[in-house]
């Protein structure tokens, strides 16, 4: 399998007046295409910092980050948003939908920033909304949907740009167990179709459904276990 992400001795340091905090402290990690990874760890372990860096929302203080074999330093600062738009899809705990927008408007957003044609945007959005079982709700406002439906919209939005990597931050954290399971089933299904997915979670049940579990403690990788082969 091709290596999608490689982190080499990656550090994220927050400097205060008299001390330094290592949010990430020497992370070495390789993520291959098609992996379904759970990142676990207690609060303050560095999960969010890792997710921010993987999602190109933040830059590391030290070390190297290779995305599809290309160093982050090679991506010009004013082009980071383009790389993020083309390569990464996000699913957040609180869905992160624009509540005043319709379902279809939410889903087409990533394509809008890619300046895709209107027809193409709508066709793709409908395709992915159908995939997550929401075709009949496309013109509803986002906040008219249930939590589970909103998370499905968020997944459709993460998929619509056909990114290489999907980052999910506690995707079931705000859902009841049954709905949470449905969401994880969708993510598993997407993974089986070849998508690389990284899920940050506290939920061991969710982690067990992944083929690799990484545990972070104090900004370091404590364990990195492959639970199933790809």
């Amino acid at each position: 399998m091709m290596e999608l992400i490689k982190l080499i001795d990656l550090k994220k340091i927050y400097s205060h007046k008299y001390n330094k905090t290592f949010a990430l402290d020497g992370i070495n990690l390789s993520i291959k295409q098609g992996e379904l990874i759970a990142v676990m760890g207690p609060s303050g372990s560095g999960k969010s910092s890792l997710l921010h860096i993987l999602g190109l929302m933040d830059s590391p203080s030290e070390g190297e980050f290779l995305l599809n074999g290309k160093s982050l330093q090679q991506i010009k600062k004013h082009k980071v948003h383009k790389t993020r738009n083309q390569m990464i899809g996000f699913v957040f705990q609180y869905f992160a939908l624009l509540k005043d927008y319709s379902v279809i408007d939410n889903v087409t957003l990533p394509l809008m920033y890619r300046k895709s044609r209107h027809k193409e945007r709508i066709a793709k959005a409908k395709l992915y909304l159908e995939k997550v079982g929401l075709k009949e709700h496309i013109y509803k406002k986002a906040d008219e949907l249930s939590g589970g439906q909103q998370q499905r919209v968020a997944i459709a939005r993460a998929l619509v740009g056909e990114p290489e990597l999907i980052l999910a931050d506690e995707p079931t954290g705000n859902l009841d167990r049954r709905t949470g399971e449905e969401i994880i089933d969708i993510l598993q299904q997407l993974n089986s179709e070849g998508k690389t997915i990284v899920i940050v979670t506290h939920d061991l049940e969710v982690a067990r459904k992944c083929n690799r579990i990484i545990e972070l403690i104090d900004g370091k990788i404590h364990t990195d276990q492959f639970t199933k082969s790809l």
């Binding site: 999602g55 929302m57 004013h78 948003h81 383009k82 993020r84 738009n85 083309q86 996000f90 992160a96 939908l97 624009l98 957003l109 990533p110 920033y113 890619r114 939005r157 740009g161």
Partner: peptide, 16 residues
């Protein structure tokens, strides 16, 4: 913040 955060995360530029 929420709206702009979402848009930036989805690929909008600061200039946008």
């Amino acid at each position: 913040k929420r709206e702009f955060g979402i848009k930036l995360a989805l690929g909008e530029s600061t200039l946008g």
